[in-house]
Design a protein around this nucleic acid. Structure first.
Lengths: 112, 112
DNA sequence: TACCTACATATAGACAGCCTACATGTAGAC
DNA sequence: GTCTACATGTAGGCTGTCTATATGTAGGTA
């Protein structure tokens, strides 16, 4: 998956994965991998900063927990984040529709 | 349309618009606007550098023409560019499929 | 005449997000 | 003692899109 293609869609992916339950960063990466059938292997250097950014904006909140001697920072959707996810979903629809319409435009030859 | 979302898809859009016939930059912008139903208004500061980049890579070739006293640089797909367009189209399919699968994953609640 | 709009190309510099690479540490298996 | 999986984090690089600006022609109109 071309990294540039992900640009601007990372937020939607992260919010979406957190919709059904709170998760910590590492688990989020695994969830993305699983849900995408192995296609989305997002590096930690992408995910952790993105999560912090989303928390700073107010779409996520986080709290630390220790499980099996390991520290986890668990993120959960805020109300604002849940609302944003709705917006991201419709933006995605719009986006694919628009780009798709350009890419699919049949190469109708001008008659001569 | 969020600019970041376009990232990594601009090439596909430009190549696609040039598939049926050679066009100059200004006409390409209009073609994108038309094909997208008015949704894709790409600024000149994006298109012109992108076209040059695609030419440098070898996907496009260009030549100057004067029409009605105005100078145009007309771009056309090379064989390499036509092949690349195929790749871009399948990459787009893959991309939408993967992101879509993550976004659409129903928020199945854990029973309690 | 002066002005405005559409046509047409181009570049400099800002911006932002994703990446690679690295650092740090625990737990458990072998 | 070493390796892998688990787990978080940051610095700095890269690159493509954007804003803003510059330049110029053609044609309409006040």
């Amino acid at each position: 998956m071309n990294p540039d293609a992900l640009r601007g869609h990372m937020d939607a992916l992260l919010l979406s994965v957190l919709e059904r339950e709170p998760l910590h960063g590492y688990a989020i990466i695994e969830a993305l991998l699983e849900r995408s059938g192995g296609a989305l292997n997002v590096p930690t250097g992408t995910v952790y900063p993105a999560l912090r950014r989303l928390e700073r904006i107010g779409y996520l909140s986080s709290e630390w927990a220790t499980v099996g001697g390991r520290k986890r920072r668990t993120y959960r959707l805020t109300d604002s984040g849940r609302k944003q996810l709705e917006g991201e979903r419709s933006a995605w629809q719009e986006f694919t529709s628009v780009i798709g319409s350009v890419l699919r435009a049949e190469a109708a030859q001008i008659p001569r």
